[in-house]
């Protein structure tokens, strides 16, 4: 109805973002800025007392003199700064250093899939890699391992990459638990989790895992290199991507099932 876009696109003359020097400085010097109010408040506190001493004012403050009132207000402000600094220090997010996954880079994609589906799976992988601490991804759907990509464990005996054994995974309690609950399961600290032996294909030092069910037919196993490395926003995005993959994959497998039934 309206495809008259043959003319050249207009050049963009809208606003351009300006650099916020304050924001840049603070995010680069987080620790310094966080404790700054404590230093400022503490120093001011001492300065007020020092000022009273050297000026020969009696140490007892009484509200009748304007000097004492000014000093009390300054002290109140100094304490406000001090307390703000303490609050800032107490809400500092713990930074947990990521580990280097012990394993080998691997990319195994099921060969029967149409190109559009492969590109969608690869897009999901790239998104996870860019936006989260994800280092390994495995997607099993309809009893087939569609993709195993990223870091993969190496078996100690023959130095070969550990390929996902779909049957074993699907019979395991981890898989069945996720399928039963139909909800994402976040193993924020994998080393505390006994079921990790059912995920032998992940690098041995994988720190956190998200198990995302894809409808009732499959699962995405997402391994990360940081303890509690996936934020709640990551979890929400991963659920969304899970729904999307289930929609795309589900339609393909329903169609291909029908075709195979017809040909048989």
């Amino acid at each position: 109805s309206s495809s008259s876009t043959s003319q050249k696109p207009k050049t963009y003359e809208g606003p351009k973002p300006r650099k916020n020097l304050v924001a840049d400085f603070i995010s680069k010097n987080d620790d310094l800025v966080r404790s700054l109010p404590i230093y400022v408040g503490g120093a001011s506190l001492l300065a007020v007392l020092f000022n009273r001493t050297v000026s020969g004012i009696a140490p007892v403050a009484d509200a009748s003199s304007s000097q004492s009132r000014a000093d009390l207000l300054a002290l109140g402000l100094a304490v406000t700064n001090l307390l703000t600094g303490l609050v800032w220090l107490s809400i500092r997010p713990k930074s947990i250093t990521p580990v280097n996954p012990k394993g080998v880079e691997c990319k195994v994609v099921e060969s029967d899939l149409p190109a559009s589906m492969v590109s969608e799976l690869l897009w999901a992988w790239e998104s996870l890699k860019v936006a989260t601490c994800c280092k390994s991804l495995v997607i099993v759907y309809n009893g087939i391992c569609l993709i195993q990509i990223g870091m993969v464990a190496e078996s100690p005996e023959d130095k070969k990459t550990v390929i996902v054994k779909t049957d074993k995974l699907m019979q395991g309690s981890v898989y069945r638990g996720v399928m039963k609950s139909k909800a994402q399961s976040y193993l924020a600290n994998l080393s505390l989790y006994p079921g990790r032996s059912e995920l032998p294909f992940l690098p041995a030092n994988t720190q956190a895992v998200i198990l995302q069910p894809l409808g009732d037919k499959g699962i995405a196993v997402i391994g990360g290199n940081t303890i509690r490395g996936f934020t709640s926003s990551d979890q929400a995005w991963i659920s969304s991507i899970g729904e999307k993959l289930d929609a795309t994959l589900g339609r393909y497998f329903v169609d291909s099932d029908e075709i195979s039934r017809v040909t048989v």
Binding site: I26, S27, V33, N51, L77, I91
Partner: peptide, 24 residues
């Protein structure tokens, strides 16, 4: 005292703005 107090007041007023850019 007043000069110090007023600078502290200005700093306190700026604190919420600064706090916004801290991580977390």
């Amino acid at each position: 005292s007043e000069a110090l107090g007023l600078s502290l007041a200005a700093f306190s007023i700026a604190l919420p703005y600064i706090g916004k850019f801290l991580k977390g």
